[in-house]
Amino acid sequence: MKSFIEYIASILKGLWTLLVGMKVTAKYFFTPWNHVTQQYPENRDSLVMFERFRGEVIMPHTENNEHLCTGCGICEINCPNGSIEIISKSILTPEGKKKRIIDQHIYHLGMCTLCNLCVKACPTGAIVMGQKFEHAVWDRALLTKVLNQPGSKIAEGVKE
């Protein structure tokens, strides 16, 4: 008799736990406006990434097409994956001195792990992390970028 009562009790208890679970799902079913889906391409206009979000390495330029990069190559040394290559060139300053400046700051986005070490190491703050995250392209070659814009020059007063 005792085992029979236990048998019945186990059935009822089991059913009860199932009902408790069903209550949880039902709660969400009947409040469909609380959904968590983000409809991505549609919400693109309102989608703002956090300011620290690491999407890619960029080199900000002023409106005079000036940047802060001296071409020192510290970012290149700090990069663990070899995704940065600095190509520098020599120019003659007005004073007649030879000076090495940046020619091309090449950035391989395809190899980058976005670890932030280059940005952290940059002594002049020339490169920062951009928030763009839509990097899909049809050709892998497009992932290799030159960060300094053509014709740009280093801003006045950047300490070398």
Partner: peptide, 13 residues
């Protein structure tokens, strides 16, 4: 759609 609603999603849209 029903499963999406249970899972706080929208389902096919």
């Amino acid at each position: 759609k029903v499963c999406a609603a249970f899972q706080q999603r929208l389902g096919p849209m």
